[in-house]
Nucleic acid binder design. Structure first.
Length: 292
DNA sequence: CATCCGAGAGGTTCAGTATT
DNA sequence: AATACTGAACCTCTCGGATG
């Protein structure tokens, strides 16, 4: 059993002491949107903490200035300015400030049908923290999110949902150290991507790619995943399926010929791959999308 | 076009080595 | 000490042939 000390009670009711909005999302929001359960912000100047577990909720904490401490899954982490944590509230977590050290922060407990997928993308790295990119808008997003809590209506729930998507996007991108304008992939990964983009019709395997670039295949697979978020094989399949969609819509080629054209000799295997990734068989895709 | 299934390739993890 | 790289072991998934 963990102690729960509300932040308000642990600090003076100064104007700039932490404020907290608790939300009661509508049934519609819970079924179809990303929704806020609790959000707050403030400047903490004394030792206080918030400790929880087994919440059906996710948490993003963002440090504006000062430092705080996050304990999550039995590990402690310093939360420095410009850093955000994204954690699963199901697990025990505690975040708090130190005595005599100011910590200015935002936090939000939230949920929604797709949050787990974002969280899994984020949690691929070791720590539950990410240093935000220089052009990050996370602070502004928190401010907008909190303004939307003032009048809880349908409009506010829709806007809050879209803000939460933007926030999750920012922290996941930061975790992978992407920048939208400059992916900054290492030359090796750029080269591998170019080869796949150009030669996806051929029989490309991880071994052949590794040989071609004279690197260890395990190292290549690992680096590719770290940089792009996907494996070389999955990247190539994606490229092939995308090209197959173009051919299905732009030509009258039979499915078997399209499979060959995108480098998959076995038609049944092509159909399986296509259906897994599109939810439709190739022919069904052609019929459905050509009508538009 | 869809389903099943076995073989083999690919992905992940972890321990170890090399390099900076 | 931190980071980059290698490779074995193990597990998962893809591929492609057979069949309906």
């Amino acid at each position: 059993m963990f102690v729960h000390v509300p932040l308000e009670r642990a600090t003076d009711p100064r104007p700039d002491s932490p404020i907290r909005h608790i939300a009661t999302p509508s049934a519609f929001a819970q079924a179809s949107l990303y929704y806020v359960q609790e959000t707050g912000c403030g400047r903490i100047r004394e030792k206080c903490f918030l400790e929880r577990d087994t919440l059906g909720s996710y948490l993003i904490v963002y440090t504006v200035s000062g430092t705080g401490t996050l304990t999550y899954r039995n590990q402690s982490h310093r939360l420095r300015p410009g850093e955000a944590a994204f954690i699963d509230g199901q697990h025990h977590h505690r975040f708090g400030s130190d005595a005599n050290k100011e910590w200015e922060l935002y936090w939000v407990y939230f949920n929604g049908a797709g949050v787990r997928t974002y969280y899994e993308q984020f949690a691929e790295q070791e720590k539950p923290l990410a240093a935000l990119l220089p052009d990050s808008q996370l602070g502004q997003l928190f401010e907008r999110l909190q303004r939307e809590q003032l009048i809880p209506d349908l409009r506010a729930e829709l806007v809050a949902s879209s803000i939460l998507v933007s926030m999750m996007t920012e922290v996941v991108l930061a975790a992978h150290q992407y920048s939208s304008s400059n992916p900054a992939y290492p030359p090796l990964i750029q080269g591998v991507m170019q080869v796949i983009d150009r030669d996806y019709r051929q029989r490309l395997t991880l071994d052949r790619l590794a040989d071609r670039f004279e690197v260890n295949k395990f190292h290549l697979a690992k680096l590719f995943k770290r940089c792009t978020g996907t494996t070389p094989g999955e990247y190539m399949i994606n490229r092939r399926i995308t090209r197959a969609k173009e051919l299905l819509l732009d030509t009258a080629l039979p499915v078997g010929d399209i499979a060959l054209e995108v480098g998959i000799e076995n038609t049944s295997h092509f159909i399986n791959l296509f259906k897994e990734r599109s939810g439709l068989t190739p022919l069904a895709y052609r019929k459905k999308w050509q009508r538009i």
